[in-house]
Simulated assay, not measured.
Amino acid sequence: MGSVNTRGGLIYLDFRYKGQRCREYTKLQDSTRNRSRAQKLLKVIEAEITIDKLDYGKYFPNSKLKAHFDNISENTRQSKAYFDAPDSPKFEEFTQTWLAEMKIEWSKGHYNDVEGVLNKYLLPTFGNKKISAINKGQILQFRSILAKVPGRTGGFLSPSRINHIMTPLRVLLNEAADRYDFTSPWKNIKALKIGRTEVDPFSLGEVEKVLKNVPEEFYAYYVTRFFTGMKTGEIDGLMWDCVDLVNKTITVSQSYVRGEVTGLKTTGSYRVIHLIDRIVDALKEHKRTAYMKDKFVFTNSKRKPLNYQVVSRSVWYPALVKAKLRPRNPYQTRHSFATLLLASGESPEWIANQMGHTTTTMLFRVYSRYVPNLTRRDGSAFAAFLSMGGEV
């Protein structure tokens, strides 16, 4: 039985909970009325202790014992979840089942990507654990360890990469919880915040320098990259039947990734790109010398689709050196296309469509800050608009 006592003119409760003696002070001054109130509170607390329903933090949110009892409750919950799912398999076993089920839905590239994350990061850590026994503390500890893993280009893994690694873990745990009827530990675990996408586009002058220094047989390839904004997989997977030189369009409907032609990631990525004459002229010249029995527009010396790693290493970076430009990855051709279109005053909605974005949100979030550096946008246009009384 607990008791109500006083010290220093304040009432405190003295009781035992989970084998621990608890002395919790109230803000009540010592008086007959307040003692009665404290007695009623103590009875409620003891009743909840009896039926194992006490939420310690509800009554004593600032108590030093709160964290201790919260930890006990979490361990109890995890133990209960473990034994409530006696048929749940080990993490590695469930992973193999899940991968087999997903293989029919995913592209080869995505499957290999997920499998790579599992083999490199998740299975070494969680493989031998019963999947229903993995708890929130272990998940957060794993994520903190990832933050200390060296990255490929120096430094440590980026928040974006860490989120990418954590995604299969989240999906696996939630799916297993649904199948084996236990509580998923993935509760209130938010993805790490990702900073603004860093892009380093080429100016128009720099684009011309690159095009002057790429090998002649790759001129049409890089003209198309710079002035269509196509992604590497999209241009490497481009086939002649998707190129209409009469109507000056390219239909983007597939991608070439890791040796396999696949569909595009999102519905918005399927699009028709309008070509400027410079691209049309370059593709006509390229077509004149290309092996027309090949389905792909751009091929290597063996008439096979381009390998982006080989092309980057043997063509792209040497061209930047010759042009005396700082190293930038080939994806900057896409960023350059977007910033040049914005600088030219094209409609943001049209630009987003050409890029394969369903809205202009990403366009403004990623690229708009480069526009003032490429155009004379200093507020003078707005001042002129006002001076004309709102007339354009």
Rank of each mutant, 00 (worst) to 15 (best):
K212W: 14
Y17T: 05
K209G: 11
L54S: 04
G9Y: 11
I351F: 06
R365G: 08
S344D: 07
R303N: 10
E208P: 00
G379D: 11
V214N: 02
L320S: 05
Y270D: 13
E48C: 10
V114R: 04
N353F: 11
A384V: 10
V117D: 10
L65K: 08
K130T: 12
I11F: 07
Y82Q: 07
G8R: 09
T6A: 12
R7Q: 09
Y222R: 03
S314E: 09
S336H: 01
D181T: 12
T299Q: 14
E175G: 07
T358R: 05
I273E: 01
T224N: 03
T228V: 12
Y221F: 02
N119D: 15
T183W: 12
K248H: 13
V223H: 00
V280W: 08
T333W: 05
T32G: 14
T267I: 04
L386A: 06
R258N: 11
T224Q: 02
R271K: 10
Y222Q: 03
V4E: 00
L122H: 01
R258C: 11
D281E: 05
L238F: 06
S144G: 03
S269T: 04
P327Y: 14
K129A: 07
S301E: 15
D113Q: 13
I250E: 00
I189V: 05
T361C: 08
L123I: 13
K190R: 13
D281I: 01
N128S: 11
P372F: 05
E208H: 06
K284T: 10
S107G: 09
R334W: 02
F69G: 04
S253K: 10
K304R: 08
P159R: 09
K304Q: 09
A85L: 08
G263F: 13
M102C: 03
R179D: 10
Y291F: 15
D14V: 11
T97G: 01
K212D: 14
L13P: 00
K248R: 13
G263D: 14
H286N: 03
D277I: 05
V171I: 13
D236P: 07
P201W: 02
I162N: 03
P201L: 02
I45E: 00
T358Y: 07
V149F: 13
I162A: 03
Y370E: 06
R170Q: 08
K64N: 08
V207C: 05
G116C: 04
F182N: 02
R334Q: 03
T289I: 15
